[in-house]
Design a binder for these strands. Structure first.
Length: 282
DNA sequence: TTCAATGTTTAGAC
DNA sequence: GGTCTAAACATTGA
């Protein structure tokens, strides 16, 4: 599921409803979502703590606590964070307001509202990170593509350092740029008329410039639409994101290219499903 | 029924 | 070291 636009959408959704709330405790239906920490220890640290902000770094979402800890959440492929107000219903398969069979963790707030962490495939994780450990915890992540430090100059410099890599795998490398995943890699390459299989050192100056601009443009647009729901991704209220209908190649294998009407192709490239138009992309 | 596919990350192999 | 594969896991659709 979630790439930068989806996590950012969730961050905004959740910031509106959980800032200022006090956590009473977390309930673990699947303890391994905590990875190698223990529920007892985790709960001791978060009990009665106020959430002061909700942040995002790459595809990681953080709940900042007043005691200088962060609850960091990675949704990996199928994670969801669904907020359930004290009153009112929530719409996600089944009875409104109930946890699903994939609910792994429930955060309980003192006002009776709840936050469900659902994760079908159980790849996602929740960790408690002291603020002081955060820099080294995120040290491996490249710059945010929508921040000022992601300059064209930087983009060119990392391209130069990885001349032999295929451009799609380059875009997916979180140590170089953080937040791009399979959907937005394919979409950015289509918009730039570059085949995913192209080698980095074969890109010309105008293609590099176009790709740089398109990455930012598409990520921003996807955020304004609330991200892309293909299967599992949901916003904090349980709704689907609105960007799926704007996809040009991702999940459109066999459909007509919207530019040239030829069929969109799908191949497996380095283990990832990869969509492209064989005519428009060179 | 069986097999391959799924939006991520990373340890381990070469 | 760079680069690639497989694995963490459950479900769905061909």
């Amino acid at each position: 599921m979630p790439e930068l636009p989806e996590v950012e959408t969730l961050r905004r959704d959740l910031a509106r409803v959980v800032i200022g709330k006090i956590i009473s405790h977390a309930e673990f239906l699947w303890v391994k979502s905590l990875h190698f920490s223990l529920p007892k220890k985790f709960n001791a640290q978060i009990k009665n703590q106020k959430i002061i902000s909700v942040e995002r770094r790459a595809k990681i979402l953080n709940f900042e606590l007043l005691n200088n800890f962060k609850i960091a959440v990675h949704l990996k492929m199928t994670g969801q964070l669904i907020y359930k107000p004290t009153k009112g219903k929530l719409v996600i398969g089944g009875h409104p307001g109930d946890p699903t069979k994939h609910t792994r963790v429930i955060f309980h707030f003192t006002d009776g509202s709840k936050l469900y962490f659902n994760d079908l495939r159980k790849f996602g994780w929740i960790k408690l990170i002291p603020n002081g450990d955060w820099p080294k915890f995120t040290a491996h992540l490249g710059p945010e593509p929508l921040e000022k430090n992601f300059t064209l100059k930087y983009f060119e410099s990392i391209l130069t350092k990885h001349p032999k890599k295929k451009i799609k795998q380059f875009l997916l490398d979180q140590t170089l740029i953080s937040g791009i995943g399979n959907i937005y890699a394919d979409e950015s390459l289509f918009a730039s008329k570059v085949l995913p299989s192209r080698t980095v050192n074969k890109l010309n100056e105008s293609e590099i410039n176009l790709l740089y601009q398109n990455i930012k443009k598409i990520l921003k647009l996807a955020i304004t639409k609330g991200g892309t729901s293909i299967r599992d991704y949901r916003r904090a209220g349980g709704e689907e994101g609105g960007f799926a209908k704007f996809l040009k190649v991702y999940d459109r294998a066999g459909d007509k290219c919207l530019t040239c009407a030829k069929m969109i192709q799908k191949v497996k490239q380095n283990g990832r499903g990869t969509h492209f138009c064989p005519t428009c992309q060179k």
